[in-house]
Amino acid sequence: MLEIRNLHASVDGNAILKGIDLEVKAGEVHAVMGPNGSGKSTLAQVLAGHPAYEVTAGEVYYQGRDLLAMEPEERAQAGVFLAFQYPVEIPGVSNAYFLRSAYNELRKARGQEEVDPLDFLQVMEDRLKLVDMEDTMLNRSVNAGFSGGEKKRNEILQMAVLQPTLAILDETDSGLDIDALRVVAHGVNQLKRPDNATIVVTHYQRLLNYIVPDRVHVLAGGRIVKSGGKDLALELEAKGYDWVTGAAA
């Protein structure tokens, strides 16, 4: 589904990613871990098409398409979804309008008919339950004045509405208490299907108790320095990142 080859990226002329190779197949959950500044969030942002990051070398193929040549909205329409580490507040645009617009754009891109506001509310009903959100959230402006936990849940709600083929969760666990973490993880697990894939970017192993990865990769200095099964996360938790980043030097 996703194939990353020798990916290099920089921001403001500073190289952050220095040769990432990664392959993700349908049905898999990959965890990307690493210390602060290792480049794991950059990887997530580059895959979504954040304009501040410049890809200086390498290739990324998504379902056989050149992902890097696609605009962010084309990537989204093709099924790529990034749950932001810091979801953006958009005062003046209601959550309902935003979600429905996004939902309909995806439908249009897939040659499906748009849904009207009433039908959309029906779509929303069970998606809201999935992330334990009240429907009053729909009338509020996108993320404006939301607590940290509400913002993260709103990201998963968007994911539940848009049903991505490739979901990238960027530090979705940061700032969440254990109850919110469970809700978010439950949502992600419920959305898992044999034909989609998830990349979980996280600093801590904690989230991986709830979203169990098939593969774990450790990023350090802009490269993947170690890959393994789900036990690698536990080993990291026990031994600390120095254990692997030392090996990178």
């Binding site: 979504a48 098409g49 954040h50 304009p51 605009e71 962010p72 909205e73 990537r75 989204a76 329409q77 979804f81 990034l82 932001f84 979801p87 953006v88 958009i90 935003f98 617009s101 996004a102 754009e105 995806l106 891109a109 968007q158 848009l162």
Partner: peptide, 11 residues
Amino acid sequence: SLFYMKSRGLP
């Protein structure tokens, strides 16, 4: 904000 909206599929 523009990137956020585009990343949700809005042209």
